[in-house]
């Protein structure tokens, strides 16, 4: 029992950091451009496949940053080529990103088939049995945790301590205000897509390394991002981090004490409760579109 709790805390702490990465990217794009990017999950999947392919020929330490850069550019490209032309219309943007998500899935299915492709960011595991932790914790989970928090920390510093980053947050509060202070809205939106892409790519590599790359691996993370963003408050980065931890721990709790099959149920219950009683979320105030 005690060991279960130790495992729960450890696993929850680590997986929640990755969820936070995914949710932050998702919420930033919504906060700044008002776009619900359903292709966000496809970028996560893209990260896993790009890394799987690259790591066959180069060392993982090289493949990881290259993958992040590739996915960041893909995300940026998605904005420049498609989204920026339709973003004024919420429904069309929504549908366009759904099409991109499904097309990417079909493409991956066609190219690589439906079976999981294994990949290793870092191999090996640590045995924590002597410390009362039941599960063997793999190194990749630790790396995922550290990298995720590094990314979150960098992003936090960027948006709170630099003029450039503050403009991103400012644009999510008041577009007109941002224009009045000389912010180039198009540049800010492009930057958000670039950042969200980098975060999605990072998450993709970590998720792929723990569970393998599959064509539909993006579905669950995207659904979780949705739930996390609603609970945290749409557009709020701080809220996303906190809600990611709530959801991550809930998930681990269910897996440990209820059963693997019920993994997503409790999160959905919490989502419904929030939608009914606190639709603005924990930190919904940062979402303030005029």
């Amino acid at each position: 029992m005690l060991g279960d709790i130790g495992t729960l805390v450890l696993q929850g702490t680590m997986i929640s950091a990755v969820y936070a990465l995914i949710a932050i990217g998702f919420t930033m794009i919504f906060g700044v451009g008002g776009t619900l990017n359903l292709a966000h999950g496809a970028l996560i999947m893209g990260g896993a496949y790009v890394f799987a392919l690259l790591s066959r020929s180069v060392h993982a330490a090289v493949a990881f940053p290259v993958t992040i850069a590739v996915i960041a550019l893909l995300s940026w490209g998605l904005y420049q080529v498609l989204v920026r032309w339709v973003e004024e219309n919420v429904v069309i943007t929504f549908l366009a990103t759904v099409v991109v998500a499904i097309a990417s899935t079909e493409f991956v299915l066609y190219q690589f088939g439906g079976s999981p492709i294994g990949m290793t960011l870092i191999s090996g595991a640590v045995n924590l049995e002597p410390y009362g932790i039941n599960a063997r914790t793999r190194y990749v989970q630790f790396v995922g945790f550290v990298v995720s928090w590094l990314a979150i920390g960098l992003l936090w510093y960027y948006i709170t301590h630099t003029d450039d980053g503050r403009s991103v947050l400012a644009a999510s509060m008041s577009e007109r205000g941002a224009q009045l202070t000389g912010v180039d809205l198009h540049a800010v939106r492009s930057k958000t897509w670039l950042i969200a892409g980098a975060l999605a790519g990072t998450a993709g590599v970590i998720l792929g390394s723990t569970g393998g790359a599959t064509p539909l691996m993006w579905l669950n993370p995207l659904a979780l991002a949705f739930i996390i963003v609603v609970i945290g408050g749409i557009g709020s980065i701080k809220g996303s981090v906190i809600a990611a931890y709530v959801i991550g721990f809930l998930e681990q709790f269910t897996v440990t004490f209820v059963g693997h099959g019920f993994r997503g149920i409790l999160s959905l219950v919490v989502l419904v409760v929030f939608l009914l009683y606190m639709p603005q979320g924990l930190y919904g105030r940062e979402f303030a579109h005029d």
Binding site: A170, M173, R176, G177, L180, A288, D290
Partner: peptide, 11 residues
């Protein structure tokens, strides 16, 4: 400086 002021409310 607009009539609505367009400040950043949570800054």
């Amino acid at each position: 400086c607009t009539e609505d002021r367009d400040l950043f409310p949570y800054f």
